[in-house]
């Protein structure tokens, strides 16, 4: 199994969760863009491994570093990039990755040069409140559980669909997987940022290979549709429970998006080909 793939997987999560943890909107957005570039690196690396007759898995060993301020976070990211680069060989893909990462390090170095960019981080302090929202204990508990449950599920879906996408020769399937991956990225971003706002940011747990090595795609899709329906119900129940117009509208919006996910997933069933 590829050690480099694991390093890139962990680096993607490092940058993504640094984006969630950061409060400054402009820096958050830049970090998120870099995280999506890192995800594409991971995808391309996976494809090149398969082409070479090798393989990869989704094992991880690193834990989320709970930093107190943004400068600690940025310094940590620079170290992680440098560590990842020790694993690289000289392919064209790696040259592209190195160029991207060097630019990313330059960006972080620029941020570190100005003390105005150093902010206290509250993403890990467990305060469990949202700015300008009054949620009672039960509402807070419901929202907390929902965010943990669904952030894991979105991470799982991104990786499972990416794994299947890398192994399909069917163009329709490829495109459906891409749509589902894009949708899950958006959901994970939404939930991750909300978790950070509540001080409960935590990495989703690692995927076991039983989760992503799918032997029966029809059963997988049937189960997946049930999960989507379950997620819809959770969104609906949460929208009702939170008793806050803005939050309710957001969870309804997510709920309605799940309808189309079910439609997309149905296209993956063998009888729909």
């Amino acid at each position: 199994m590829s050690k480099l793939y694991q390093v890139k997987h962990e680096l993607w999560l490092d940058i993504l969760y640094a984006s969630f943890a950061t409060g400054d909107k402009e820096i958050k957005d830049r970090l998120y863009d870099f995280s999506m570039i890192a995800f594409r690196h991971m995808k391309w690396l996976g494809e090149s491994l398969l082409e070479a007759g090798s393989d990869y898995n989704y094992d991880r060993t690193k834990r989320l570093q709970k930093r107190r301020c943004t400068f600690d976070l940025f310094n940590d990211l620079i170290k992680e990039v440098k560590t990842a680069q020790q694993e690289y060989n000289g392919s064209t893909l790696i040259s592209r990755i190195v160029t991207d990462e060097n630019y990313f390090v330059e960006y972080l170095t620029l941020l570190l040069a100005d003390s105005k960019n150093n902010h206290k981080l509250t993403a890990f302090d467990l305060h469990r409140t949202l700015p300008n929202k009054k949620l009672d204990t039960v509402q807070t508990h419901s929202l907390t559980m929902f965010l943990f449950e669904e952030s894991y599920k979105e991470y799982e879906l991104i990786l499972v669909y990416a794994y299947m996408q890398a192994r399909t020769d069917n163009l329709l399937h490829f495109n459906v997987f891409q749509d589902l991956i894009d949708e899950s990225h958006f959901h994970l971003k939404s939930f991750g940022n909300m978790m950070a706002q509540m001080g409960i940011l935590a990495l989703p747990r690692e995927l076991h290979e039983l989760t992503y090595k799918i032997t029966d795609i029809s059963q997988f899709i049937v189960n997946g549709i049930k999960e989507e329906e379950n997620a819809k119900e959770q969104c609906r129940a949460l929208a009702e429970a939170v008793n806050d117009t803005e939050l309710s509208q957001f969870f309804d919006f997510i709920n309605y998006q799940e309808n189309y996910h079910i439609e997309l997933m149905t296209k993956l069933l063998p009888e729909s080909i």
Partner: peptide
């Protein structure tokens, strides 16, 4: 099922 005392939250955040 509220499941949100500090012990439970610890297990959720870091199993």
């Amino acid at each position: 099922p509220e499941g949100m005392n500090p012990e439970v939250l610890k297990h959720i955040m870091n199993p």
